[in-house]
């Protein structure tokens, strides 16, 4: 029976081993009980502070130029104060075109790539911005929309980064609207110092017009189709939260019918105009007149006016248009 007698060394070893296993299990369990677990509620981020510029009485709220796309962009932006009024050297600029559809430029469903590229060049070359990001959350397949719209190639050629989802992903952000208080926002939106809104004027089946106010919709993620339940209030909530620094409206080709997707070249009218300004409501009102619509009777435009986002009259008032040349 001698082997059965415990020697001190073995006793100590066994006790230590048993204690180590029990202690380890206890420690792990204790930490786990106190832990809040693997899943947290998503953090809600605040949108960047105001990116707008002070009103300047020397410049009109809206300027319209006709001619070639590039020349029109330059002329219209120059007329509202020049790009240097909106973008400071070294800043990061987010350019938000409408790049939502798997359509070619001729079909007029997306912002014209030449307009986007010109805005990018203005920011980089004239305003000496450090970085220009062109971003949108397309409705159709993201990469196809980016390339078939021509914006991907044109904007990259002008020196911008072009981002579509999944890309840098989405951030849950506080919009503070009436129906949209928090929503998923495409991440490039959060880091930019300036936001330049570059919509295209189009017909829209549900809202009659899609232009500057509605363009912000393209920076949202989530099940944004849900927004169509209260589309007008949602558009105004988005526009109130995003407040672009400058809006450049592409009306070089205007889709008059069957929006927002279109497809038929017959639906597209060659208007050949570009408008720029700080008053999105006025720019949308101007766009509505191109479609032959009364802006007062487009609910989201009049709602935006009543929320203090701008003045319809500034857009519909007769004005002298700039002839920009080819």
């Amino acid at each position: 029976m001698s082997g059965a007698h415990p020697d001190r060394r073995r006793v100590l070893k066994r006790i230590l081993a048993a204690g180590a296993v029990l202690g380890g299990a206890g420690l792990a369990a204790g930490v786990a009980v106190l832990s809040r677990g693997r899943w947290r509620e998503p953090r809600v981020a605040a949108l960047p502070k105001a990116r707008g510029v002070e009103p300047d009485p020397r410049f009109p709220a809206v300027a319209v130029a006709r001619g070639g796309p590039e020349a029109s962009v330059r002329a219209a932006v120059a007329a509202v104060g020049g790009i240097a009024r909106f973008v400071r050297p070294g800043e990061t600029v987010l350019v938000k075109p409408n790049m939502g559809w798997d359509r070619t430029p001729a079909q007029g469903a997306n912002t014209d790539p030449r307009v986007v590229a010109e805005v990018v060049r203005l920011c980089l070359e004239e305003a000496r911005a450090a970085r220009v990001v062109v971003a949108d959350v397309p409705v159709h397949d993201a990469e196809r929309s980016r390339e078939r719209s021509g914006i991907g190639e044109a904007a990259r050629g002008a020196g911008a980064e072009v981002l579509v989802p999944p890309g840098p992903g989405f951030v849950l952000a506080r919009l503070g609207g009436v129906v949209l208080d928090t929503w998923e926002v495409f991440a490039p939106m959060m880091g930019a110092d300036r936001l330049i809104n570059v919509p295209v004027v189009k017909d829209h089946a549900l809202t009659r017009l899609t232009c500057g106010l509605k363009n912000g919709y393209g920076l949202l993620g989530g099940t944004r189709a849900r927004l169509h339940q209260q589309i007008n209030q949602s558009i105004v909530d988005i526009a109130t939260a995003f407040r672009p620094t400058l809006t450049v409206v592409d009306a070089t080709r205007v889709m008059m019918r069957n929006g927002p997707t279109g497809g038929r070249l017959d639906d597209v009218a060659p208007v050949g105009a570009v408008a720029a300004g700080t008053d999105v409501v006025a720019l949308d009102a101007w766009g509505a007149t191109l479609l032959g619509a009364d802006p007062e009777r487009i609910p989201h435009v009049s709602l935006a006016e009543s929320r203090g986002l701008g003045r319809i009259r500034e857009g519909t008032a007769p004005r002298e248009e700039i002839h920009a040349g080819p």
Binding site: E41, V44, R174, G176, D181, T182
Partner: peptide, 13 residues
């Protein structure tokens, strides 16, 4: 809570 205080619900909870 998010249906009324969207964004503040986590803090309130």
């Amino acid at each position: 809570l998010h249906e009324r205080v969207d964004g503040a619900e986590e803090y309130l909870r």
